[in-house]
Nucleic acid binder design. Structure first.
Length: 816
RNA sequence: AGGCCCGUAGCUCAGUUGGUUAGAGCACACGCUUGAUAAGCGUGGGGUCGACAGUUCAAAUCUGUCCGGGCCUACCA
């Protein structure tokens, strides 16, 4: 893309390309004969004038000198004496640029005078009879008899840019002739250089064109080839049925006039052609061409100007018989030719020579329909008979928060660099990846803050996964099988579904579909449901428990995919996460998206979990009411009574641990009629919930309420499940239980108490144990970018004693 | 002025061949939790689908007009 925007290099291959000579020169205004030196496929002699045609593009010289009164008579010699040559009719034409409410609707036409007049004239008369009254120097020519050599605008000295002598001379001549009816000054803005602000004038001048409607290749015209290539290329219409880019380029190619390729500029790539002075024929001679090509290979495109014509012409032609055309080539031709050196077939370009094994996609802003996409298409269709790309992807433009274009004078410019500095480049990437980039993109505080929050959610999820997977080993892995709980079957099924969505999204460049699917998965499936439910197993189950192993195995697959799927959008975050867990592995960016086994597809688990979650929503709704009524605080304080009318749903609920899903201490599922005041949701008829307080005592470890009579005598204040885990842990570490679970079993034993939760070690102070507070080993404030976890100063032994590994290694990003 | 587009909640987006009460996430408010804590969970409010007119039993969806916005219509890339 960038090459399309760069200034052309003079040494590029473009000058060689155009020697194919499928372009021609138009000089009809001075009645030149058709150029018989042209190749058969050249054309454009009768090119319609239009916005891209000669007269409309003049830059240097004023139209003032080609005042109608100064026109040469069309049917007589242009010069008839000192003040002669001005006796002719000026046609009055019906022009679109003059309306009948602002005037008569008719134009007193001066085709050498300006673009509109040129267009209306050529519509009626072709290019016959249009004089060239101004030369390249900005001076009147001999076709303005009596005023030859006068400057329109002064090009040098202290009055640079001011009126030259021509204007005054013409006015004086009109006065002398008694033909001046009125005079006055009008200030207007239009003809100024957009860049230098210098005044401009129009002039008409001979130009070179590439014909679009002349058959040249298998009897087809350039326009026909380009149009059929537009059908082949994927502008989005094949990928996702979006026709906007296809419509736009197609309309442009259908309607455009011949390609004006010559420019009167001091710099650029020369057309590098000779025209015979006697008849205007283009010199087509392989030996001459070879000399030009060789010289350019040696010295770049500048040699065209630096080398005498005779050196190129050799012994067969005389320099004085030829005009060495010094016009340069339209710079679009340069960028349109980029494929020639990128794809490397410039020596013998043909359709077959085009090397694009992987397919070629052009990516640029949607303004390039008029630019790079366009010129590349025409140039390549002419030289290779095919478009240089197989697909085109466009994007819109960055607007301000209101959707208005950014402008320095309005002061609504949002600079990407600032977002990168203030919020981080990943946020900007995420913002763009989640937007419909084909349309315009609004930039402002709201959307940046939003992307920021989304990023934090993703980062936090990854951070949690790192903690949850700390120490995960292959021996722990539980591949999907008969032992796999429904919850994990469902999670793998979700990964299977996501795999399809994400792959398709990337393949079709619909990045926001990948982002929204991933973000929604993290929020809705992982954070609000799966992880919330599985925290109990993760923290409290014994490491060998099937449930915990299934959970960690599934989370490992989640980790593997999330890091890969996010890598293209959040390259640094994905790498940081990956490297934190696998410091010796190659970069995350060298991975492919992990293959997802088809066996993970589990429609039964998907449907079953959908029903369960619907029923769960009724329970959480009921819990919310109980909470408002101060019956409970945490959900674990409740034991809901769930009335289920539908038998199959009831079986479904009973087949699994529904309390686990609802994160309550037990649950009672009943078939009978629910009390009238039971909680119901209109979306889920047939389910009604009454919240009861959970009986029993609170487990010191898992916080679940349980019947103390069921407790292991060795661990009276924790549930049997927790007792099993603690016993296993202690057996493995060979240390007395109460040394680490002191606060649980022997309050007041010391200043610090530790106990373990799954693979983690937690600690509390006496005060905290006595009071309500509970202090886990807090992740300390670390500089961004991570680092070693420094434990609080009073915990040094704890860490070494228990082999505590830092698991908060991916640090949160401060909210801004 | 013409060509190609865009307009659904405060924001980013879904919304199938027209068919239940227009959805999701974020944001916001309230509550819970304090073992993801610069975190986490729950509940809730919020939309005359840019406006108007038409076609239809039925329109965010089809048609027309208008309003607002963008790109292009450069001897800028």
């Amino acid at each position: 893309m960038c090459c399309a925007r760069r200034r052309p290099h003079r040494g590029s291959a473009c000058a060689i390309l155009i020697r194919a000579a499928w372009f021609s020169r138009i000089r009809s205004a001075i009645g030149e004969p058709p150029l018989d030196g042209e190749a058969p496929r050249s054309g454009g002699g009768g090119a319609p004038a239009s916005g891209e045609d000669a007269a409309s593009h003049g830059a240097i010289v004023n139209d003032g000198a080609s005042h109608p009164l100064s026109h040469a008579a069309r049917d007589s010699s242009p010069i008839e004496g000192e003040r002669g040559g001005y006796q002719f009719d000026v046609p009055l034409l019906d022009g679109d640029h003059v309306t009948d409410d602002a005037g008569t609707g008719f134009v007193h036409t001066a085709p050498g005078h300006g673009a509109d007049d040129f267009v209306i004239w050529t519509k009626h008369f072709g290019q016959e009879g249009i004089p060239f009254t101004v030369d390249a120097e900005g001076k009147l020519t001999n076709q303005a008899p009596g005023f030859e050599g006068l400057e329109i605008i002064q090009l040098e000295g202290k009055n640079l840019g001011k009126d030259g002598p021509a204007n005054k001379a013409v006015i004086e001549a009109l006065i002398a002739a008694g033909a001046l009816l009125a005079r006055g000054q009008l200030k207007h803005q239009y003809p100024h250089s957009w860049r230098s602000k210098a005044p401009l004038i129009f002039r008409n001048t001979p130009q070179w064109f590439i014909a679009l409607d002349k058959p040249f290749r298998d009897g087809k015209t350039l326009r026909q080839i380009a149009l059929s290539e537009i059908e082949r290329v994927d502008w989005g219409q094949h990928r996702w049925g979006a026709h906007k880019d296809y419509n736009r380029i197609k309309g442009m190619i259908e309607d455009r006039p011949d390609w004006l390729v010559s420019r009167q500029r001091a710099w650029g790539v020369p057309l590098a052609i000779f025209v015979r002075k006697s008849d205007g024929a283009l010199l087509m001679d392989d030996a001459v061409d070879a000399r030009i090509v060789d010289a350019m290979k040696q010295g770049g495109a500048d040699v065209w100007w630096a080398t005498p014509a005779q050196d190129f012409l050799g012994n067969d032609y005389k320099a004085e018989d030829f005009e060495k055309v010094e016009d340069i080539l339209d710079v679009w031709f340069d960028s349109g030719s980029t494929h020639a050196f990128v794809l490397g077939d410039r020596d013998a370009p043909t359709r077959a020579s085009f090397k694009n094994p992987e397919g070629v996609i052009y990516l640029e802003g949607s303004d390039q329909h008029r630019g790079w996409f366009h010129s590349s298409l025409l140039e390549s269709c002419a030289t290779r008979g095919r478009a240089p790309y197989d697909a085109v992807l466009t994007h819109g433009f960055a607007m301000d928060e209101e959707g208005k274009k950014m402008s320095k004078s309005v002061g609504n410019v949002v600079e990407p660099q600032k977002i990168a500095q203030q919020n981080g480049i990943e946020i900007l990437r995420l913002l763009i990846a989640s937007a419909e980039y084909g349309d315009d993109l609004r930039m402002g505080k709201t959307i940046i803050d939003q992307a920021s929050e989304t990023y934090r959610k993703l980062r936090n999820t990854l951070r949690y996964l790192l903690g949850a997977l700390n120490g995960f080993e292959e021996s722990e892995r539980l591949p999907k099988g008969e032992e796999t709980p429904l919850l994990e079957r469902w999670l793998l099924h979700r990964l299977y579904e996501l795999d399809g969505i994400v792959r398709k999204a990337y393949e079709t460049f619909q990045f926001r579909e990948a982002v929204s699917a991933i973000v929604e998965f993290c929020n809705v499936d992982l954070s609000a449901f799966y992880v919330d439910v599985r925290k109990d197993a993760l923290y409290c189950d014994a490491p060998a428990s099937v449930r915990r192993r299934a959970c960690r195995s599934a989370l490992d697959e989640v980790f593997s995919r999330l890091t890969a799927w996010l890598a293209p959008i959040l390259p640094f975050t994905a790498e940081e996460t990956w490297a934190t867990r696998f410091p010796s592995e190659p970069s995350v960016h060298l991975r492919l998206f992990p293959e997802t086994p088809a066996a993970w597809r589990d429609d039964f688990a998907g449907e079953e979990m959908a029903r369960l979650r619907e029923a769960r929503a009724v329970v959480t709704g009921a819990l919310e009411v109980a909470r408002r009524e101060k019956l409970i605080g945490a959900a674990l304080e409740a034991r809901p009574l769930v009335f289920v009318a539908d038998e199959s749903l009831r079986a479904c609920l009973e087949a699994i641990d529904f309390a686990e899903l609802c994160i309550t201490s037990g649950i009672n599922i009943k078939a009978g009629e629910a009390p009238a005041d039971a909680f119901r949701l209109s979306e889920t008829p047939g389910v009604a919930v009454v919240i009861e307080k959970a009986p029993g005592v609170k487990c010191a470890r898992s916080w679940k309420y349980f019947d103390p009579a069921s407790a292991d005598p060795r661990y009276p204040d924790i549930t049997p499940r927790d007792a099993e885990a603690v016993a296993a842990w202690d057996a493995r570490h060979g240390a007395p239980l109460d040394a680490r679970c002191g606060p649980v079993h022997k309050p007041g034993h010391g200043a610090l108490w530790s106990f373990h939760l799954g693979n983690r070690v937690c600690a509390r102070s006496d005060q905290q144990m006595a009071g309500a507070g509970r202090a886990e080993i807090q992740p300390a404030r670390l500089p961004r970018g991570g680092g070693e976890l420094p434990l609080p100063g009073n915990f040094p032994d704890l860490r070494s004693a228990h082999g505590l590994e830092p698991w908060h290694q991916l640090w949160p990003v401060p909210r801004r």
